[in-house]
Amino acid sequence: MARYGMALDYKNCINCKACEVACKEENGVLLGADKHRIWVGANDVDGEWPLLDIVSATFMPSQCQHCDDAPCQSVCPTNATYYDENSVVRVDPDKCILCSYCMNACPYDARYVDDRTMTVDKCNFCSDTRVARGETTTACQNTCPTKVRTFGDLDDPESEISELLRTREHFSLKAHLGTKPKLYYLT
């Protein structure tokens, strides 16, 4: 039993997309540019060449926020979306009826359709692959060249993530929505 979360040192991100490929290979995510559990938000830079605003070109690595108060979970009519014993927001392929309410409810656009299992799927913190094997990092954390991510147990005060959240300032995405994400962006 743990309460899993993730801290992101997002300023390290170079938008290389290693995390996207690692996630697909680890978790058997379908091929196709629209099938992914993880992505990097990047805007086209503001300004006119050669006067461009570097700050507007920030890369925002993102995935399911594993909200403590997840809108996708509350709208799911079949309880296919549920919290597992580690507080990870999961989807049960047997219960999912592809109604796609969750896709619309998610403020972070975290979900996609897996055409093979016929499930509206998303990041599950590698719960049925790496974490099930007892590994302590997710595929996206492990492969990242600049080590953006730290995954761990928020309830364990000794964990690296707890330490990071104690010592570094951080924010959540769309915090005003009250979804209480368990992804923390370190500043």
Binding site: K24, E25, G28, V29, A33, D34, K35, D109, T129
Partner: peptide, 27 residues
């Protein structure tokens, strides 16, 4: 079949060719 939604530079053109797979790692 792929249409880019979040990736600006993925998305044009008809797809062709063989089926492809990814494998999910086991436990």
């Amino acid at each position: 079949a792929s249409v880019g939604v979040t990736n600006l530079l993925a998305g044009h053109g008809e797809e062709k060719g063989e089926l492809s797979v990814t494998t999910k790692t086991g436990t």
